[in-house]
Structure formats: C-alpha cells, structure tokens
C-alpha cells in the first residue's frame, strides 16, 4: 500500500466520510474511492452494495479478484435528554458499537455521576448540535418530552441527513409536536422521517426495555433502511 493512500484513508475517517479501498489481489494495484466519487465509479454498484453492508469483502469483476476495504465512519447516537431511558441506553449503545452523545441543558440531569464514561454536553441543543454535527452516519433520539429542548434538536435533525430520527412521547404528545413542526415550516414528508411512537413495538415497559426497543429500531434503519 502506498503511504499516501493510507494517509488519505485515515484523513477520510477523521472527517467522518466513507471510502472504499479497491485492491486487485493479483496485480497488487490499489486505488481509494472517496464517498463523493462512489456514485460515478465504474464499479459503483459493487462499491455501494459493499458500503451498505458495512463490511469489507472480496468481489469479482471482469475476471479480477478485488478486495474491497470498506471504511465507514463510526455510527453516532445523539440523544437529547439525560433521563432514565438514556442511562439504560448508553451501555447498550456501547455494546452495539454506537458512539453516544447526551445533550441536556438541565445540569441536574446531565451529571457525570448519572452518566459516567459517555460524552455529556450540558448545553441547549441549538448551541451543542452545530458543534457536534449531524450527518448520515448519525441517529438522533429525542427523549426529554420537553418541547423547549426536543423541538430545536428535532428541527436540526430534520434539516440534516441523519439516518434515523426518533422522538419519545405519546400519540397525543406527538400530534402536538407535529403541529408545532408544521407551523415551523416542515412538510409532512419531513415530519414523516420522525419515528413516533419511538422504538420497535415489543410492549416495552421499563426504561431498559424502551432503550432496547429504540436501539433495535436504530439498527433496523441502519442495516435495512436506505440510510447510511
């Protein structure tokens, strides 16, 4: 491998952009296809399918054995609400390889004692989110029920390419949320991106069960959806 290819792969990863390294195992030739160039590549269907699987693998093309090294950014889970459900969600997310960030301006909730070993941002979402950045490798989950906190974050998520957006709340709570987002100028198609009621329907009762239902839905969107 050429050093400049390796350096480019490391730079793409640091910038949270996907790339695929194409290695011809017979000739030793290698080239790096960055995310923006994937669609126009002669091998586009192969590369995109491999990227969607999230795994590296061997393919055949024109009688050549090619190894595709897939490098997709780590999936991030951005949560508003340093609440009981998020406490249960953090260790599960870690097991799933999701990089969790918790945002909650209520400093009584967002304490390191309640949330050890996770990135905790005790700020308003409008301040925190532009810095954190929401991209197509990010799932966003609103868990506060509080429109003051959840709504600005949901608006930011709807304006982004997040592969998953979910918001906690009863049907009634969500109906009111839909009204507010509509007034804010979002279309029914935009608002339809929000998973609400949030989580797979498994009859979840406890905070941990709800966390499980939400994360299962996130994984389903990641692996089966048209997202990342």
């Amino acid at each position: 491998m050429k050093l400049d290819i390796l350096a480019a792969m490391n730079a793409e990863r640091a910038a949270r952009r996907a790339c695929v390294l194409v290695s011809d195992l017979d000739s030793g030739e290698q080239r790096l296809v960055v995310e923006a160039a994937l669609g126009e590549d002669p091998l586009a269907p192969l590369l995109l399918a491999q990227l969607r699987s999230g795994k590296s693998g061997m393919v055949e093309s024109g009688g050549r054995r090619l190894f595709l090294t897939v490098q997709a950014p780590p999936i991030r889970l951005v949560i508003t609400g340093a609440v009981h459900i998020s406490q249960a969600m953090v260790p599960m997310a870690r097991q799933l390889g999701l990089d969790a960030v918790i945002i909650d301006p209520r400093t009584a909730f967002a304490t390191p004692e309640r949330f050890p070993n996770v990135r905790l941002v005790p700020e308003w979402p409008d301040e925190a989110l532009p810095r954190i950045g929401l991209d197509r490798y990010t799932a966003f989950v609103a868990l506060t029920h509080d429109p003051k906190i959840d709504d600005p974050a949901l608006s930011a998520a709807l304006r982004s390419d997040c592969f998953y957006i979910g918001a906690l709340g009863s049907r009634k709570t969500h109906a009111r949320r839909v009204e507010r987002l509509t007034e804010a100028g979002f279309t029914p198609a935009d608002i339809g991106r929000i998973h609400a009621p949030i989580g797979l329907s498994i009859g979840a009762v406890s905070p941990a069960e709800i966390a499980l239902a939400i994360l299962a839905e996130v994984v389903a969107s990641l692996r089966q959806g048209d997202g990342a």
Binding site: M1, L3, L6, A7, M9, N10, S56, M58, F67, T69
Partner: peptide, 22 residues
C-alpha cells in the same frame, strides 16, 4: 491500527499491513 501504521512510517520505520480477506 491504521493510524499507527501511518505514524510508524512517518517515523521512518518499515511497515507491513496484513488484512483478513477471506
């Protein structure tokens, strides 16, 4: 791992990369 490989090379070390392909 890949960052380390780049760092080693920049430090002037010789480096090889092994990848599980199948």
């Amino acid at each position: 791992i890949l960052k380390q490989a780049e760092k080693w090379k920049h430090e002037g070390r010789e480096v090889a990369i092994a990848t599980v392909v199948e």
